[in-house]
């Protein structure tokens, strides 16, 4: 099982061009991540903004055509609702930070457990990882939303458990599974000679892991980890389906309050733009880091 994830070796036979190797490396990395990589350029954001402006003006023109001069334009409506929508978007970001934090801590532990020498630990952590990687994000979110209690009582202390925290946990579960695979892949990509060398220097297994292997892994894990973060951020809209007051939920409520169906397009477009504007710098940085670390490998 583990072998599949290794970076594919090279061959002397001129069967395929270097592109094949690159693709395979990318596939191996994506498999570890469980999701494809993002690639963004500045003009994509501009293009999206242009599309939305075009849409809004189109809708505006349509509204004019219908002879509803007294009706408010789409742009001023978006402007009026801007504080509400931005507030919702900040909530999305907060959810993504928390999920990423919890998922990373839990996933790192799970990933280290996956290379344990004790087979029950290895087996069970592998099972947990595969389970949460194979379950759709939306289903996991529903699961946490409906089946986690509203509050926990531990030793007489009642800890409230509002639904946004449930959403954080629901999103942290697939993040955990993906981080687990990133960590396992990174640890296994360090040449085994290092383990042997450290062993001969009388390092214990834990010392080798924490002082030699993991510090090297951080660099390799950073790009896929950031990519995972971008994917998580886009997945936070799923929380709207279960009623958390994030940007999509608010957009839907705004649309219900406005009750003007022609607003659906520009408002959803605006939500797309918000996400694009946020994910773009992350994707750029990821790309830069990838390039920088690729040279040193």
């Amino acid at each position: 099982m583990a072998k599949r994830h290794d970076v594919y070796g090279t061959t002397d036979l001129p069967v395929l061009l270097p592109a094949a190797e690159r693709l395979n490396r990318q596939a191996a990395a994506e498999r570890v991540l469980g999701a494809p990589k993002l690639r963004l350029r500045a003009w994509h954001g501009l293009a999206l903004a242009a599309v939305i402006v075009l849409w809004t003006s189109f809708v505006w023109a349509q509204a004019d055509g219908a002879g509803n001069e007294q009706q408010e334009s789409v742009i001023s409506a978006i402007w009026r609702w801007l504080p509400v929508l931005l507030g919702g978007f900040v909530f999305n970001i907060a959810i993504s930070f928390l999920s990423m934090g919890i998922g990373t801590v839990a996933g790192t532990l799970l990933g280290i457990m996956q290379i344990s020498q004790v087979w029950p630990v290895r087996g069970s952590s592998w099972l947990v990882t595969q389970f949460f990687r194979n379950a759709p994000w939306l289903v996991l979110l529903f699961f946490c939303m409906f089946l986690l209690p509203f509050e926990f009582t531990v030793f007489g202390v009642t800890i409230p458990f509002p639904d946004w925290i449930k959403a954080v946990i629901g999103l942290a579960l697939p993040v955990m599974a993906n981080v687990s695979e990133i960590v396992r892949g990174a640890i296994q990509s360090i040449p085994s000679g290092q383990w042997e060398a450290a062993h001969s220097l009388a390092f214990s297994r834990w010392q080798i892991l924490s002082q030699i292997i993991l510090p090297q892994c951080v660099k390799r894990m950073l790009p896929p980890w950031m990519n995972l973060y971008a994917i998580l951020t886009m997945a936070t809209v799923l929380a709207s389906v279960v009623g958390v007051g994030e940007v999509m939920t608010l957009t839907q409520r705004v649309l219900a309050a406005e009750n003007r169906p022609e607003f659906l397009v520009p408002f959803y477009g605006f939500v797309m733009l918000l996400f694009f504007a946020y994910c773009y710098p992350i994707a750029r940085t990821t790309q830069k880091l990838e390039l920088r670390y690729a040279v040193k490998q």
Partner: peptide, 10 residues
């Protein structure tokens, strides 16, 4: 609307 809905202040 109108039993429970959002105004523009949220």
């Amino acid at each position: 609307k109108p039993y429970g809905y959002l105004d523009s202040d949220g």
